[in-house]
Simulated assay, not measured.
Amino acid sequence: MHSAPLPTKGRGARSNATGRYEPTTTEAFDDGWTAEDEAPTQIRTILTPEHARTIIAGNTSPDIGFDRSIDPYKGCEHGCIYCYARPSHAFMGLSPGLDFESRIFFKPGAGRLLEQELAARRYVCKRIHIGGNTDPYQPVERDLQSTRQILQVCRRFNQPLSIITKSNLITRDVDILGPMGRDRLASAFVSITTLDRRLARAMEPRASTPAKRLEAINRLADAGVPVGVGFAPVIPGLNDHELEAVLEAASKAGATTAMYVTLRLPLEIKDLFREWLADARPERAARVMSLVRQTRGGKDYDPDWNTRMKGTGPVADLIAARFKAAIKRYGLDAPRHPLDETKFRVPADARAQLELFG
């Protein structure tokens, strides 16, 4: 089955290939339009409620630093072309391409769902990570406020949390995160992949600008939230030369810790990324993919648990060495701020309501 290419203004992916579980596939063909022609209307974001019974997800991956998380949304409008969450849309019969960034699922009553789980007698308090898969502060959050509902409940229960985002919208919630941070109940990471506005616009089309992300670090730090910077992903030949500059800028803004992840290209992402690279940075495409393969044992991706986050080989080793030196130089090697799990309390009204309707 063939279809005309979809408009991509304001989106990251250049195509919308069918999910891998579907019986038929679609393939775009060139109808002659180019970037010099008048841009078509932007793709409309479609919001779909997801009626779930739970909101906390468990994690058993040995290389992830948390065992439970909350993702307020499935899909992400930010459109980051490298996003490792893209393949999850195939499970819903949707494309990891443009569908992922325009077909967004949300849980109505997210705060109520979380309150029910935290109030359950079997619940044992441990840190909850918010945004481990898709961004909790993507543009739809301005209206839906699912993430804010979740934070409000965490504050009521003194439930410790960590949160990661590419959006300056997180500063809206410093009234919650600030007091929680000062009480050792919250920490945050802001992901900055580049200081180049043009590259950020091409690679992460609907995320906040690099300057706005640095501003978010500053606002969070000033409010008392322990905040780190994530230089993720490191893309050899594309943004790796900015590693030191990004870490220095984040340190000056108030970050006290840092992390990095080398580009991962599992499943459909490898084709989406190569397609984007050939369109957005054609002069670098061959070099970038060659360097990527050098970090993955000659393949586009190696899913080995022990190496998938950082890669292997001389290129990966050099990135690791530069990162280690830079975090020491810029004071980003402070220990992670431990969160206090002993303050967790179920409010009396929450327990009573659960027993009444349980």
Rank of each mutant, 00 (worst) to 15 (best):
A4N: 07
P5F: 04
P7L: 07
A13K: 13
N16M: 02
T18H: 04
R20I: 05
T26W: 00
T26V: 00
T26R: 00
G32I: 12
W33E: 15
T34I: 08
A35P: 06
E36A: 11
E38N: 04
P40K: 09
T41L: 05
T41C: 01
Q42A: 14
R44C: 00
H51R: 12
I56D: 02
A57Q: 11
G58Y: 00
T60W: 15
P62L: 12
D63N: 15
I64R: 10
G65H: 14
F66Y: 15
D67N: 14
D67Y: 12
S69W: 01
Y73S: 13
G75H: 08
C76D: 11
H78P: 09
A85Y: 04
H89M: 15
F91G: 08
G97W: 09
F100A: 05
F100C: 03
R103G: 08
I104F: 14
L113A: 03
E115N: 00
A119V: 10
R121K: 11
Y123M: 00
V124Y: 02
C125D: 06
I130A: 06
T134L: 10
Y137I: 08
Y137H: 06
D143R: 09
L144D: 06
Q149W: 09
L151N: 03
L151F: 05
R156S: 10
F157V: 09
F157K: 12
P160R: 10
I164T: 15
I164F: 12
K166M: 03
D173H: 12
D175L: 07
L177W: 02
P179Y: 09
P179G: 09
M180Y: 15
D183S: 14
R184F: 07
F189W: 12
V190G: 14
T193F: 07
T194M: 06
L199S: 11
A207P: 14
R213A: 14
L214Y: 08
A216P: 02
L220G: 13
A221R: 13
V225A: 06
G228Y: 13
G228A: 13
V234I: 10
V234G: 05
V234P: 05
G237S: 00
L238I: 02
D240L: 05
L243F: 08
A250R: 03
S251R: 00
A255N: 00
A255T: 00
V261G: 05
V261N: 08
E268N: 03
E268K: 02
K270H: 08
K270C: 05
R274D: 03
W276Q: 09
A278I: 10
D279L: 05
A280D: 10
A285N: 08
Q294H: 11
G298M: 01
D300L: 00
P303R: 08
R308E: 03
G313R: 02
V315M: 07
A316M: 02
D317M: 05
A320C: 03
A321W: 01
A325Y: 01
I327T: 07
R329Q: 13
G331S: 01
D333W: 04
R336S: 11
H337T: 11
P338F: 05
V346T: 09
V346D: 06
A348V: 14
A352S: 04
A352N: 04
